[in-house]
Simulated scan of single mutants.
Amino acid sequence: MKLQQLRYVLEVFRHGNHISNTAEALHTSQPGISKHIQMIESELGFEIFSRKRNRIVGLTEPGREVITIVQRVLNDIDNLKRLGEEITSRDGGSLTIATTHTQARYVLPKVIERFIQRHPAVQLHLRQGNPTQICEMVESGDADLAIGTETLRPFPSLVRLDCFELERCIITKAGHPLLKIRRPSLHDVAAYPIITHDPAFSGRWKVMNAFKQAGIQPNIIFGAVDADVSKTYVELGLGIAVMTAVTFNRRKDQGLRAIDATHLFQSSMTSISLRANSYLRNHTYDFIRLFAPQLTREAVDAAMQQVQ
């Protein structure tokens, strides 16, 4: 049994049981992956994947246990590598952060500036995606930690550390009629075309859920991939935008105005997600503490132990 075979099994599962998608992502051949999976199944004495007409359609019952074990084994291998880096290069190494546009653009800059000042020898890498995608990066080992809000699906193999809430506001063009209403209602907001986040972001769910519970059908003209795009279209006068308040800067967004919307829409919780049972280097603990001061080393370790 080889580590490469274990990786193929896990990657096929992560790619929705599609060998073709897995082969494309790993830049290898479909027959090669199929062969390695058959070899490990032969060695184990049972099938990991259930098949229909020689096509993988899901996991068998023992296959589910295999995935859990494989994830743990590969995570431990990764921990050994991290331990080696910690011993041989105490001041260096790397840290890969997967995050959303809002966090990367509006929350992280000052944190990263302070981190680089403290750890100049650490190579820092940023990867962006929606909340679900960034957790998938951590789950697969392509990132060390994810910083974002709620995801479309649960990630039982990750530890989620709550940091702080992001409250919402309504962004309008200067002079917009909505600015004349001291405390706008959902009906007031729904009277105008609305720009909100793409459906993959928690902001979209919470905005739509507020309207749904009030029995209102808003006019959503489109879902933008990030706050900067939303503000661009608001400036053009195409509509108003429901966004997190942290994305509005009174000095820089001079042609726009922000209306408090905490009474209308739920806030989103910003969290850090880590692989359970992963070995964290000292600079990783330091980055977490810089981002969320309440997350001390002891707090992080306690949260990691709860899922063991």
Rank of each mutant, 00 (worst) to 15 (best):
Y8K: 01
F49M: 10
L10F: 15
V12H: 00
R14V: 01
L44G: 06
R7F: 06
H36Q: 08
S29C: 05
S42G: 00
S34D: 05
N21M: 05
S34G: 11
R55W: 00
I33G: 02
S29H: 11
K52W: 10
N54F: 08
R51I: 03
I56G: 01
H18T: 12
F49W: 09
Q30K: 09
K35C: 04
S20N: 14
A23E: 04
L44F: 00
I40C: 09
A23D: 03
N17H: 09
H36I: 01
I37A: 11
R51A: 04
K52N: 15
H15D: 08
I33F: 02
L44R: 07
L10W: 12
L26N: 12
S34K: 15
I19V: 15
P31H: 12
G45E: 03
K52A: 13
E43V: 15
L26P: 12
N54P: 00
F49A: 11
Q30F: 01
E11D: 12
Q30N: 08
K52Q: 12
T28H: 08
I48F: 07
I19C: 02
H36S: 08
I33M: 03
G58K: 03
M39S: 10
E24G: 11
H18V: 04
Q30Y: 02
S50V: 06
V9Q: 11
M39T: 02
R7N: 06
K52F: 15
I37N: 09
Q38W: 01
F13P: 00
L10V: 03
S20G: 08
L44Q: 07
G32T: 14
P31M: 01
V12R: 07
M39W: 05
R7S: 01
S42W: 06
I19K: 09
E47N: 11
N54L: 08
Y8N: 05
V9T: 15
K52T: 14
Q38Y: 02
I37Q: 12
G16Y: 04
Y8I: 04
T28V: 05
S34P: 05
G16V: 13
G32C: 10
N54R: 15
I19G: 01
S34F: 09
S42Y: 05
F49H: 12
E11N: 08
Y8T: 07
F13Y: 14
N54D: 12
H15V: 06
S20Q: 13
S42Q: 13
P31C: 00
H18R: 11
E47C: 14
V12P: 03
A25L: 00
